[in-house]
């Protein structure tokens, strides 16, 4: 019986080993190598040189800064907006299923489609946002071409794109909270705000913790959004670590250095992930 189970698992296990485990091992080895695809004869082990270079590389640190900025903006954004939407949907007596489907719809688009769509929304000359602003007597804004606007614009698009999933997860968690807690609190004369503060939030904490950790991980890997909207500009202010890794490995063909930066990004995500889980586990 156990053997049959393993047989069923085997196809996935094999593909997992080939396409996940093996690349991880290869990238780890590569991170200690000089491996330039355009000059393979110069390949060789260089110890920690790639890591040392990354830590002294201004472009790496500016990419870390952009990544952190994105993660710090998108995680609370998704949590607050997602929770608000979940609360709204939870309170709906009718039509919840239809709204749930609509909310989830943007997440069905891939990043290329989403990026092109929002490029037009943000366009300074013919874009939807500036059209609306001008229509109501305001001034057009440099959504993607000004350093102060570019990252918030990317975050705005990312929230629109992904908040549906977050809202659905939180809605499911909300629906798991037994109604008797709210009934008892109502009998004791608790206000809606106090019920939210002392019943809803504490009981949502495990799911919110999950949402924070998963959106943080996704945030740290930000690539497609900036690549489609700004290509990392203006002046590299929105180029995240993932994009810098991509450009190093596939434009400069420096595989070793790209691999080392990948492991540094992994370390960064791990540190933040562990920190977040510990913070969320602390008693209120």
């Amino acid at each position: 019986m156990q053997r049959t189970g393993f047989l069923f698992l085997a196809p996935y296990a094999v593909s997992f080993a080939i396409f996940v485990i093996l690349p991880i091992v290869v990238s780890f080895v590569l991170s200690f190598m000089r491996f330039d695809l355009t000059a393979q004869s110069s390949a060789g082990f260089v110890g920690f040189d790639n890591y040392r270079e990354a830590l002294q590389d201004n472009y790496f640190w500016s990419a870390v800064k952009a990544t952190l900025l994105f993660a710090l903006m998108i995680v609370p954004g998704l949590l607050v907006i997602g929770l608000s939407m979940a609360l709204g949907m939870n309170a709906m007596a009718r039509g919840q299923a239809a709204v749930r489907a609509l909310v989830f719809l943007p997440g069905m688009l891939n990043i290329a489609v989403t990026g092109i769509l929002w490029q037009w929304f943000f366009n300074g000359e013919f874009g939807l946002f500036n059209f609306a602003l001008k229509h109501f007597g305001g001034q057009g804004q440099p959504w993607l071409s000004d350093k102060a606007f570019a990252m918030p614009s990317i975050v705005l698009m990312s929230v629109w794109w992904t908040v549906g999933g977050t809202a659905i997860i939180l809605l499911t968690a909300l629906q798991q909270i037994p109604g008797m807690y709210f009934e008892a609190a109502a009998l004791d004369g608790a206000s809606t705000t106090r019920m939210f503060r002392y019943i809803t939030l504490p009981l949502l904490k495990p799911v919110m913790s999950f949402v924070v950790v998963t959106t943080s991980i996704a945030g740290f890997q930000m690539f497609g959004q900036a690549f489609m909207l700004t290509r990392g500009g203006p002046e590299l202010s929105t180029r995240g670590v993932a994009q810098y890794i991509y450009e190093t490995a596939f434009n400069s063909y420096r595989m070793g250095y790209g691999a080392a930066m990948s492991w540094l990004l992994f370390a960064l995500i791990s540190v933040f992930g562990i920190f977040q889980i510990r913070m969320m586990r602390r008693p209120a």
Partner: peptide, 8 residues
Amino acid sequence: IPPPENGL
């Protein structure tokens, strides 16, 4: 020339 945000 159009400002950078113009997108022309």
